[in-house]
C-alpha cells in the first residue's frame, strides 16, 4: 500500500495517462465498431511510430534540459535525400546508410551550436530547421519538381511496405526497438544516469567530472539519426518524398514527451511515459476520425489534453503529497 501511494505520488502523470488511455479504449470500442480491429490499431501505431521513434531519443535529450525543434525538417530532408539517391541509381541499402549519416550530421550541427558553443536551443535548432528545410526544397528542385514520386525503384517501397515476418510493418518494429533501446539506456547505462544528472544540476554534473558537453552532443546526434530513420521509413512506406512533410512534427514530439511527464528543465522523465503520451494523442486523433468529427476538433483536443493532463497531475499530485 505504501509503495502504491509512493508510485501514485511520483508518477501521477503516468497514472492519469493510463486512465485516459483506458477510457479512450473503452469509449471508442463502444462508440465505433471499427475501432477494435487489427487494421485500425496498425494504422494508429503507424502514425504514432514516426513520433515515438524520434521522441525516444528526444526524450533523453530533454531529460538533459535540451530540446530539438529541427526534427521535422531533418525528417523531410532525409526522406527526400533517400528518394533522390534511390531514384538516381544508388542502391537502396547504401542510400539509407548515407542518409542516416547525413541525418547524424544535422544532429551534429545542433550538437555544435547548442552543446559546444552554448547557444540557446530554441534559436539554434530553429536555425537548423530553416537550413535543413531549405536543402530539402533544393533536392526536390534538383529532381525537377516539388515532390519525388515517379521513377522510384521497386525495392525502395518494398523496404517500407514489406511486413517483418509477414506480420508487422517495419515502422512498428523499429518503434518497438527504439523504445526498448532507450528504456535500456535510461535504466542500465552510465549514459542514462549521466543524462539525468546533467538535467538535474548542470553545474554539479560538471564538477563531478561528467562530460556534459559530450553527452548532450551525442544525444543531439542520436536525435538527428532517429529523425533521419523516421524520414526513410515514412518515405519508403508512402512511396512519396516531399520537402514539406513533417511541418509541426517537432511540436508533436515535444507534446508526447511533456505529456509523458518529462520536464523541459530536465532531470525528470521516462521513455515509458513518453510512449503513453504518444499513444493518448494517437488514439484521440484516431477516435475522432472514426467518429467522423471534423479534423479541426483534433487540434483543439490536442491542446485540451496537453493543458488538462498537466492541470490534473498538478492537482492530484499535490493532493497525494498532502
Amino acid at each position: 500500500m505504501k509503495y502504491l501511494m509512493h508510485y501514485l505520488q511520483t508518477d501521477m502523470q503516468k497514472v492519469i495517462l493510463m486512465g485516459i488511455l483506458a477510457a479512450l479504449m473503452i469509449g471508442l470500442s463502444i462508440a465505433s465498431p471499427n475501432f477494435l480491429s487489427i487494421t485500425n490499431f496498425t494504422n494508429v501505431l503507424l502514425k504514432v511510430a514516426i513520433i515515438v521513434i524520434i521522441a525516444s531519443a528526444a526524450n533523453l535529450l530533454m531529460i538533459t534540459g535540451n530540446f530539438d525543434l529541427s526534427v521535422g525538417a531533418v525528417l523531410a530532408f532525409s526522406g527526400i535525400l533517400h528518394a533522390y539517391m534511390s531514384k538516381h541509381g544508388v542502391p537502396v541499402e547504401l542510400s539509407i546508410l548515407i542518409t542516416l549519416i547525413v541525418a547524424m550530421a544535422w544532429g551534429g550541427v545542433n550538437a555544435l551550436t547548442v552543446s559546444v558553443l552554448g547557444i540557446n536551443p530554441v534559436i539554434a535548432t530553429v536555425g537548423t530547421l530553416f537550413i535543413a528545410r531549405g536543402f530539402a526544397f533544393l533536392i526536390a528542385r534538383w529532381d525537377g519538381g516539388a515532390n519525388i514520386m515517379m521513377g522510384l525503384p521497386r525495392d525502395f517501397v518494398d523496404f517500407g511496405r514489406d511486413p517483418v515476418f509477414g506480420l508487422v510493418p517495419l515502422a512498428i518494429v523499429v518503434m518497438v526497438a527504439a523504445v526498448a533501446i532507450f528504456i535500456f539506456i535510461e535504466k542500465r547505462t552510465a549514459l542514462g544516469r549521466k543524462a539525468y544528472a546533467i538535467g538535474a544540476n548542470l553545474k554539479s554534473a560538471k564538477l563531478s567530472g561528467i562530460n556534459t558537453v559530450g553527452i548532450v552532443a551525442l544525444l543531439y546526434v542520436l536525435v538527428g539519426l532517429f529523425a533521419g530513420l523516421s524520414g526513410v521509413l515514412q518515405t519508403s512506406r508512402v512511396g512519396l518524398a516531399s520537402p514539406t512533410v513533417g511541418k509541426g512534427l517537432e511540436f508533436d514530439v515535444i507534446v508526447a514527451i511533456i505529456l509523458g511527464g518529462t520536464s523541459m528543465l530536465g532531470g525528470v522523465g521516462s521513455t515509458f511515459g513518453m510512449v503513453l503520451g504518444a499513444l493518448v494523442v494517437g488514439f484521440t486523433a484516431n477516435g475522432m476520425v472514426l467518429l467522423g468529427i471534423p479534423f479541426y476538433y483534433q487540434t483543439i483536443a490536442y491542446g485540451v489534453i496537453l493543458i488538462g493532463t498537466l492541470l490534473l497531475s498538478q492537482k492530484f499530485g499535490t493532493r497525494a503529497k498532502a
Binding site: 549521466k194 539525468y196 544528472a197 538535467g199 554539479s204 554534473a205 564538477l207 567530472g209 532531470g267
Partner: peptide, 20 residues
Amino acid sequence: REEGIFGLLGIAKNVPLMNM
C-alpha cells in the same frame, strides 16, 4: 545546492556520479 547535489535524484543515483 548549486554545485554539489542533484536535487531531483535519489541518494542512490547521486552517490556514484563521480565514479560510475
